[in-house]
């Protein structure tokens, strides 16, 4: 007679062994010992808090502020540049000042905007480490920090772009920008055709993170 009861080995959550009491397998967590630099960071942070230079609350609020930044901020800057030629000129002249003018709190960021045209395509990298305009665009994508991207894009940008799905005609000049010192960069992608009727907020939805790094074009409107 069927009772509806299944013995444990038939349960959907059966993973044979290493089960927690919930029936799920244990997930890997912070199980490995701290690295040298993790230990150093914790020691420094605790000392700064202990000496009253900063506080845990201040550190947490800075992390919140950084997490709140996203490519949407940069997208608004680009959309404004597409819509307002005078703003575009100010952005190309001094991208930090133009971003602050829009109300973005970008701290000490020294930003340079480089503009894509029909003939020129710009792409950003930091070969020495992983410099990125995070005060405007938020945290960088993981691939941006890889040795592969950083070393290859300065030698074979066209092959790298093709792997991102962007094949540029031979008539387009590629300008790679290596953030080796104090400046950070944002690409102003080409405004897609068929967007004449869109307002600034609608235009901003077409500006992706990758289009501001230079590994993609802005999205075409639906």
């Amino acid at each position: 007679m069927a009772t509806g009861w299944k013995k444990p080995s038939d349960m959907p959550h059966d993973h044979h062994d290493h089960l927690s009491s919930s029936g799920h397998p244990y997930r890997a967590d912070n199980d490995a010992p701290l690295t040298y630099w993790q230990t150093m960071e914790i020691a420094l942070r605790e000392l700064l808090v202990e000496k009253g230079v900063t506080s845990q609350a201040e550190i947490a609020s800075q992390i919140d502020a950084m997490d709140a930044r996203s490519p949407a901020d940069g997208a608004r800057v680009v959309a404004r540049a597409w819509s307002d030629p005078a703003f575009r000129d100010r952005l190309l002249h001094d991208a930090s000042a133009a971003s602050r003018e829009m109300g973005f709190d970008i701290g000490a960021l020294r930003l340079i905007a480089v503009e894509n045209t029909g003939d020129v395509h710009n792409i950003i990298v930091c070969t020495l480490c992983s410099c990125y305009p995070r005060n405007l665009l938020g945290l960088s994508p993981d691939w941006y920090k890889t040795r592969e991207y950083r070393s290859r894009v300065v030698i074979e940008p066209r092959r790298v772009l093709a792997e991102f799905g962007l094949t540029l005609p031979d008539t387009t000049t590629i300008r790679v920008h290596d953030s080796t010192a104090d400046m950070r960069y944002i690409v102003i992608p080409v405004r897609p055709s068929g967007t004449e009727h869109l307002n600034e907020a609608q235009l901003a939805t077409l500006v992706t993170r990758d289009s501001m790094i230079g590994t993609a074009q802005a999205r075409a409107p639906r």
Binding site: P157, T173, I174, R175, T180
Partner: peptide, 19 residues
């Protein structure tokens, strides 16, 4: 200038900040 004959396209450019 940078890569010589190995360049993918000779007149593409690279800008860097140098002291």
């Amino acid at each position: 200038d940078i890569w010589g004959a190995r360049a993918e396209r000779p007149d593409d450019t690279l800008d860097a900040e140098i002291y």
